[in-house]
Deep mutational scan, measured.
Amino acid sequence: ATVHVKGVTYHFDNPEQAEKFAKRMAKELNGEVHVDGNTWHVD
């Protein structure tokens, strides 16, 4: 799974980790999470 945060890409072997990371980053950055298959975007 892949997480894109403000133009930076993070790779996770575990999709659950990717989801938790994306949601945590969105919270910290006051952003929104969008999911597209195995790819998470934090804007």
Rank of each mutant, 00 (worst) to 15 (best):
A1T: 08
A1W: 15
A1S: 09
A1Y: 15
A1F: 15
A1G: 10
T2W: 13
T2K: 12
T2V: 12
T2S: 10
T2F: 13
T2R: 10
T2A: 08
T2E: 08
T2Y: 13
V3E: 00
V3M: 01
V3P: 00
V3N: 00
V3K: 00
V3G: 00
H4Q: 11
H4L: 13
H4A: 06
H4Y: 14
H4I: 15
H4G: 03
H4W: 14
V5M: 06
V5E: 01
V5N: 02
V5I: 11
V5W: 05
V5P: 00
V5F: 08
V5A: 05
K6Q: 14
K6M: 15
K6S: 14
K6A: 14
K6L: 15
K6F: 15
K6C: 07
K6R: 13
K6I: 08
G7V: 02
G7H: 05
G7L: 04
V8R: 12
V8A: 08
V8K: 13
V8H: 11
V8M: 12
T9M: 11
T9H: 06
T9P: 06
T9L: 11
T9I: 14
T9R: 08
T9F: 09
T9V: 14
Y10G: 00
Y10P: 00
Y10L: 04
Y10I: 05
Y10R: 03
Y10D: 00
Y10Q: 02
H11C: 06
H11W: 13
H11P: 05
H11I: 09
H11K: 09
H11R: 09
H11M: 08
F12P: 00
F12C: 03
F12Y: 03
F12V: 01
F12I: 01
D13A: 12
D13G: 08
D13E: 12
D13M: 09
D13Y: 07
D13S: 12
D13N: 11
D13Q: 11
D13F: 07
D13P: 11
N14R: 08
N14P: 01
N14D: 14
N14I: 08
N14C: 05
P15E: 09
P15T: 10
P15D: 09
P15H: 11
P15N: 14
P15M: 14
P15R: 12
P15G: 08
E16S: 10
E16Q: 11
E16M: 10
Q17P: 03
Q17N: 10
Q17R: 07
Q17M: 12
A18P: 00
A18R: 01
E19W: 06
E19R: 06
E19N: 04
E19A: 09
E19Y: 06
E19S: 06
E19F: 05
E19C: 05
E19K: 06
E19I: 05
K20Q: 14
K20Y: 09
K20A: 15
K20P: 03
K20S: 13
F21G: 00
F21V: 03
F21Q: 01
F21K: 01
F21Y: 06
F21H: 02
F21D: 01
A22T: 02
A22N: 00
A22F: 02
A22E: 01
A22H: 00
A22M: 02
K23Y: 14
K23C: 07
K23H: 14
K23V: 12
K23F: 13
K23A: 09
K23N: 12
R24K: 14
R24Q: 15
R24E: 15
R24P: 01
M25W: 09
M25Q: 06
M25A: 07
M25G: 01
A26I: 03
A26R: 03
A26W: 03
A26S: 05
A26E: 04
A26V: 04
K27M: 12
K27I: 12
K27Y: 13
K27C: 05
K27D: 11
K27F: 12
K27E: 13
K27P: 01
E28P: 02
E28Y: 08
E28R: 10
E28I: 11
E28S: 06
E28L: 10
E28W: 08
E28D: 07
L29M: 10
L29C: 09
L29Q: 04
L29N: 05
L29D: 03
L29Y: 07
L29K: 03
L29V: 06
N30S: 08
N30A: 08
N30M: 08
N30P: 05
N30Y: 06
N30H: 11
N30V: 05
G31A: 15
G31C: 08
G31L: 15
E32Y: 14
E32L: 14
E32W: 15
E32S: 15
V33Q: 03
V33M: 08
V33D: 02
V33H: 04
V33P: 04
V33N: 02
V33G: 02
V33K: 02
H34I: 11
H34N: 07
H34R: 15
H34Y: 14
H34W: 15
V35S: 10
V35T: 08
V35N: 13
V35C: 05
V35A: 08
V35E: 06
V35M: 11
V35G: 10
D36R: 10
D36N: 13
D36M: 13
G37N: 07
G37P: 02
G37V: 04
G37F: 04
G37M: 05
G37A: 05
N38C: 06
N38G: 06
N38I: 07
N38T: 10
N38F: 11
N38M: 11
N38S: 08
T39Q: 13
T39P: 02
T39H: 15
T39W: 04
T39Y: 07
T39L: 05
T39D: 10
T39K: 11
W40H: 03
W40V: 03
W40T: 02
W40A: 02
W40Y: 13
W40E: 01
W40G: 01
W40K: 01
W40P: 02
H41P: 01
H41E: 06
H41M: 11
H41G: 03
H41T: 15
H41K: 09
H41C: 05
H41F: 15
V42N: 02
V42Y: 02
V42L: 04
V42Q: 01
V42F: 03
D43I: 15
D43N: 14
D43T: 15
D43A: 13
